[in-house]
Write a protein that binds this DNA or RNA. Structure first.
Length: 192
DNA sequence: GATTGGATCGCCT
DNA sequence: GGCGATCCAATCG
């Protein structure tokens, strides 16, 4: 299991989003690492993608997207939830990949406690759920996804799976773009 | 300074 | 399948 470095994230966003499927995300939760397999992602492109936070230019909230690749971008949504992204592509292209669902691996007891749910499928099957389960907080916004509190590793390279490409969830802008990717038949995705 | 609406979830029917 | 919760950031004036 190798850590994913800058060169992994510093590529075209749809490529990174697709490539992240099957990889391991690890969150440092106090002294315990929590982890899961990435099973669902969405690509948010730069200035030409009306669905992306960066579409209307740089602001205080989305500033991280305008920085280098391999940085955690976390934001609050609907007043109560948080979503986790990792930045991608070159420094002058404000893009990121939203992590939408995980298959829980390590720290499952802590995830259950954080979520108040017992079912494995209820722990990380949505962007706000996985943030809650793994204890990711807004204070991690802007930290490195290469050597910070949230990191990525290669998974089981021999594992074979089919990737489904479809439209992104919950958007009114850029809703027609097929930039959502998930592992076919995986029970831990957020929805079909 | 005020208004608007959102990359969601959970509970209800 | 539908809707309310709940609040901050972005936008406009």
């Amino acid at each position: 299991m190798e850590p994913l470095g800058k060169q992994f994230f510093n590529r075209e966003t749809p490529l990174v989003a697709k490539d992240l499927l099957g990889k391991i995300i690890e969150i440092q939760h106090k002294d315990t690492p929590l982890s899961g397999i990435v099973v669902e992602t969405e690509a948010y492109l730069g200035l030409n993608d009306p669905g992306s936070h960066s579409f209307r230019g740089k602001t205080k909230r989305n500033a991280v997207m305008f920085g280098p690749a391999g940085v955690s971008y976390i934001y609050q949504i609907y007043g109560i939830y948080f979503c986790y992204n990792v930045t991608t592509d070159h420094e002058d292209i404000p893009a990121a990949v939203l992590i939408r669902a995980l298959e829980p691996l390590k720290g499952i007891e802590i995830m259950k406690r954080n979520r108040g749910k017992e079912e494995l499928k209820d722990l990380c099957s949505g962007p706000a759920k996985l943030v809650q389960a793994t204890g990711i907080t807004i204070s991690m916004n802007g930290t490195s996804a290469i050597h910070g509190p949230v990191k990525f590793y290669t998974g089981d390279e021999n594992k074979n799976f089919e990737i489904v490409e479809t439209t992104r969830v919950g958007l009114t802008q850029g809703a027609d773009l097929e930039l959502r990717y998930y592992i076919k038949n995986n029970p831990f995705i957020s929805r079909k």
